[in-house]
């Protein structure tokens, strides 16, 4: 019981401190610019592009897709920077020197970003309703909330894997940006999955966000939580898989780094 309590404490402290460490150097205005305005501008750009393409008939498709895709700002950039931040700040040797539960440390890095990312999506959808005329009148809002949380969770799973890659590569921002922008193509945020070539559809199906976006669109069209449950279960599974792969890589990295003395050499 004592161990569980200590691990939960570790999880919470790691969660809070890594999040604070990530944003402590930022002023609220920078947070607003990077986490609120940038994703919103991106959403409006693709919504207008979609509106131009469909002569204004299919704007909801783009607003919902890009609003949900905003989870990737927290899921990819936020989580990666939280995990990789230990290397940049020089705290990695101390972290690996402690006897703390690695599982708690690792997954603690993503927790706040799930909440943060979900809030970002809610803001985006609100602007979508107010400015782009997004119609959510048929939508089961609690189910949409569940979809947003699950999609953010699964995207953070990918972020954890990317975060581990940031421990072994020097071009972190290149990789992050590439994955983030690739999600705009492959997740179905802007292009219906069915209209993509077969190999692209295969990639889409292996990514987080794809099913979350499909689920959100179905809910906006009047589907029930039961209708989208299979999609959401798959989305959770994909998130867990990426998170697990990230954890395995994290553990492998620790072993290799300790064995070879290469903790901060990349």
């Amino acid at each position: 019981m004592n161990t569980i309590s200590k691990n939960l404490q570790l999880f919470w402290q790691g969660t809070l401190l890594s999040y604070k460490a990530l944003f402590a150097w930022l002023r609220p205005v920078t947070y607003m610019a990077s986490k609120v305005l940038m994703p919103l501008a991106q959403m409006f750009f693709f919504a207008f592009l979609g509106s131009f393409a469909s002569d204004g008939k299919n704007v909801d498709f783009y607003v919902i897709g890009n609003a949900i895709q905003i989870t990737a700002v927290s899921g990819i950039f936020g989580v990666t920077m939280s995990v990789g931040g230990d290397r940049d700040a020089g705290t990695l040797p101390y972290l690996f020197g402690t006897p703390s539960n690695r599982f708690m440390i690792f997954f603690g890095r993503a927790f706040m970003h799930i909440i943060d990312g979900a809030i970002g999506v809610v803001i985006a959808l609100t602007w979508g309703v107010l400015l782009m005329g997004l119609d959510l009148s048929q939508t089961n809002l609690p189910a949409l909330g569940v979809t947003i949380l699950i999609t953010t969770f699964s995207t953070c799973g990918l972020g954890l894997l990317m975060g581990c890659l940031s421990l072994i590569t020097a071009n972190v921002m290149f990789v992050n940006n590439f994955v983030y922008f690739s999600l705009l193509v492959f997740s179905g945020a802007n292009v219906p999955i069915a209209s993509l070539p077969a190999w692209m559809q295969a990639v889409s199906n292996a990514l987080p966000l794809t099913r979350g976006i499909a689920s959100a669109r179905a809910l906006a069209a009047g589907a029930t939580l039961g209708d989208v449950t299979p999609l959401l279960v798959s989305e959770i599974g994909i998130g867990l898989l990426y998170g697990f792969l990230g954890y395995v890589l994290f553990a492998w990295f620790e072993i290799q780094a300790k064995r070879r003395g290469t903790l901060e050499t990349v």
Binding site: F46, A53, V185, N190
Partner: peptide, 15 residues
């Protein structure tokens, strides 16, 4: 290179 390329892919699909 990559960001404009991805935007071009999206633009070509969407339009």
């Amino acid at each position: 290179v990559f960001q404009p390329m991805i935007i071009a892919v999206l633009g070509l699909f969407i339009l």
